[in-house]
């Protein structure tokens, strides 16, 4: 029994390594087709990501919302839910945060308090949007993929409407965003850096909480049961709908915090693509780590590093930065593919 288990673990690692290799090979082929020297590309990504403390700082800035999004998604995935709507949940978090700041900005409240309320509002915004997806699924029988996708579009439309309409800069009609908030409403950063330690801590705490929840609590165990076999879980007395809704709400909370971070620590205003695609990237991370919280943090860090490192590509090699996206996407694809291959082989 144990031998079989270790054997399958080894085969799993082998297949994953193969998947990584295939992804690298695939990306390399893409580079060759576009006429780039792959070694140079990889080297530029590495130096671009780690070449200076500022770069490492930028990676951590990108890591923070990605961690929050991934942490939330691990909960919904565990409950067997495809929370595609996470992008919209991040966006709603950002909208609610901006809203809170706009309302409280003219008051005499201390900036720290305003920022704290901003975070709270962001969390509520994310939960609100995620709760909608959950309710649609549970009571409206709308699959969460379609519900989430629809609400993503609504969230984008809402952002655009706010930016061009009620929240526009005076005399300006541009999608470039709302008026930036004054410096005292920016989340404090380390001197000379963009990273806000508070936001980073929030991301790390979120993933730690999810790790503990999934690993050592009844809640996590039951959530897994719901995800594996909802009907069996229900028959065993687990209130499945409540657990699903809980998963959505917790994921929305973290997504909302990610949105709040984008407003308070990165852009200091609302912009149209405020979610920056971290929700979808988070899904890729979660799939890549096979929904294991332990690996989510380092893989998210790796993805963030790829994003930052690839900025160098257009400067030096005149290549599009989206090459990092090709690598990220093909990694996920090949890992899933190899997982399927392994299952098929080990079954026979």
């Amino acid at each position: 029994m144990t031998m079989m288990k270790t054997s399958s673990r080894w085969s799993g690692i082998g297949f994953q390594a193969l998947a990584v290799l295939l992804a690298l090979a695939f990306t390399t082929v893409v580079m060759l087709i576009s006429g780039a020297d792959p070694l140079q590309v990889y080297q530029n990504i590495i130096t671009g990501a780690l070449g200076s403390p500022t770069k490492v700082d930028d990676i951590l800035v990108a890591w923070t919302p990605l961690l929050l999004a991934t942490a939330g998604l691990l909960l919904t995935f565990t409950a067997g839910l495809w929370n595609i709507g996470i992008e919209g949940q991040i966006t709603l978090g950002a909208i609610f945060t901006t809203w809170a700041l706009r309302v409280l900005q003219p008051t005499d409240l201390p900036p720290t308090l305003i920022v704290a309320v901003g975070f709270l509002a962001g969390a509520l915004g994310g939960m609100f949007w995620a709760g909608l997806v959950g309710l649609l699924k549970i009571f409206g029988n709308v699959n969460e993929i379609f519900g989430g996708l629809g609400l993503n579009f609504v969230a984008t439309a809402l952002t655009i409407w706010l930016i061009f309409g009620p929240w526009k800069r005076p005399g300006v009609g541009s999608m470039s965003g709302t008026e930036p908030f004054p410096l005292e409403l920016w989340l404090p950063t380390l001197p000379g850096f963009r990273l806000s330690p508070l936001a980073l801590a929030m991301g790390i705490i979120a993933i730690a909480i999810v790790y503990i929840l999934l690993r050592g609590t009844y809640f996590g165990l039951r959530l897994k049961a719901v995800g594996r076999n909802g009907r069996a879980a229900f028959l065993m007395g687990i209130p499945t709908t409540r657990y699903m809704l809980m998963a959505f709400l917790l994921c929305g909370l973290m997504a909302g915090l990610a949105g709040a971070t984008q407003v308070l620590a990165v852009y200091h205003r609302l912009i149209p693509s405020i979610s920056s695609g971290y929700g979808f990237l988070g899904m890729m991370v979660a799939m890549l780590v096979n929904y294991q919280a332990l690996w989510a943090a380092p893989v998210a860090l790796f993805f963030a590093a790829l994003n930052i490192g690839s900025i160098q590509l257009p400067i030096v090699l005149k290549l599009d930065s989206s090459l990092s996206g090709v690598l990220q996407g093909s990694l996920v694809l090949f890992v899933l593919l190899m997982d399927g291959v392994r299952r098929r082989l080990t079954r026979s």
Partner: peptide
């Protein structure tokens, strides 16, 4: 621009 380079400033 934020649409082409999400997450950057």
């Amino acid at each position: 621009n934020p649409a082409d380079r999400p997450g950057t400033t």
